[in-house]
Structure formats: C-alpha cells, structure tokens
C-alpha cells in the first residue's frame, strides 16, 4: 500500500540517551515491530567501518564491527551503524502510546520521542538516480544518499523480502 497522505500518518523520532548495543537494538526493534502500525522505519547512527578507514593503520580489520547480526520480525540483518536514532512513520496517532510503552520496555535508560516531519516527500535527484521514477513513495527518506548500495529491507506481514540491509 502506498502512503497517500501525511495528514493521517505521523512521523516520530526516538532518541535514546545512549548508543545502543546490537542486543538492545534487537530488543527495541522487535518491541516496536510488535506494537504495530509501522509504515516505515529507519535506524541511524555513526558508521561502524569493517576496517580502519585512514591513517597508518588503514585497512586493518575491525573485528568488533563485523557480524553484528540482529533479528527483527523473524528476519536477520547485519548492522553497520551504532544505533543512536530511530525514525519511523506510524499509520496513525493511536499507535503512539504503544510505541512509547515499547520503548520503555526495551530501553534500560531514558529516551526522547519527538514528533515531526522526518522523511521527505518529493524525490530528490539522488532518489531519481538510484530508483528512477519512484512509484512507492515510502522509500523516500529511507536511503542514505551517499550509500553505494540501497541498504533497504522490506518487511511485510505477507512476504519478507530483503534487498540488502535494514539500516540507512
């Protein structure tokens, strides 16, 4: 289903007071997923490179950042960011209370939930270069414009398909 209007759905941003470990991220995302009403979701945070990007140690593998696997909604993903912010769109405001409760259950520290407009609605040139004409506008704002790959996962109640990864 294509999101037709922003007037019914709401967009929120969850900002935990600490960066999340993969275990906490998994717990939080599953709680959010279980609370229902999610149209789309994006996790955001500083990059975790697989090798030292520059300096005298350039190219040295960083084992700590590899295989950070989490399982959300029965689907395994590999994290490549340190999760510090989660943006999501809910079908309607009635799911907001459930989302807050899910965060309270999953996070052992304080957090903020902000309402606002976090996903753009018109395709940018980068979107056009990556996707061509965008049919399903839900993917707008989910992709890091600088990412070389799509890094997008689509979870559906009917069928689960994964392009690459679940984070942007």
């Amino acid at each position: 289903m294509v999101t037709e209007s922003d007037t019914e759905s709401i967009q929120v941003e969850i900002i935990p007071n600490r960066y999340l470990t993969p275990a906490t991220t998994q717990r939080l995302l599953n709680e959010i997923y279980g609370s229902g009403g999610i149209t789309r979701i994006m996790v955001h945070g500083p990059n975790l490179p697989r090798s030292v990007p520059y300096g005298p140690g350039r190219g040295t593998p960083i084992e700590e950042n590899r295989d950070l696997l989490i399982e959300v909604g029965g689907q395994a993903f590999e994290l490549s960011v340190k999760v510090g912010r989660i943006r999501l769109e809910l079908e309607s405001e009635e799911y907001l209370a459930g989302l807050k409760a899910a965060c309270e259950r999953a996070l052992p520290f304080s957090f903020q939930i902000k309402r606002g407009k976090f996903f753009h609605t018109r395709p940018t040139i980068t979107d056009y270069a990556k996707f061509g004409k965008v049919e399903d506008k839900r993917i707008l704002g989910l992709i890091d414009p600088k990412a070389k790959r799509n890094r997008l996962a689509i979870l559906s109640e009917v069928q689960v398909t994964v392009d690459d990864k679940e984070e942007c």
Binding site: N17, R18, N47, E64, K82
Partner: peptide, 26 residues
C-alpha cells in the same frame, strides 16, 4: 586516538564508554 577521533560530542555507549568506531578500548 591518533586518527578517527570523533567521540567527544557523541552520546556514550550503554556501558558508559565514549563511542569509538575503531573500538580501541573495551
């Protein structure tokens, strides 16, 4: 941190450590 220095203005990790994307301390 001789390179990849950022961490000063980032939130802490869950265990109270300063974030380091190269994981130099644990």
């Amino acid at each position: 941190r001789g390179c990849t220095v950022h961490g000063h203005s980032l939130r802490l990790e869950e265990n109270g450590m300063q974030f380091d994307m190269l994981a130099r301390t644990e």
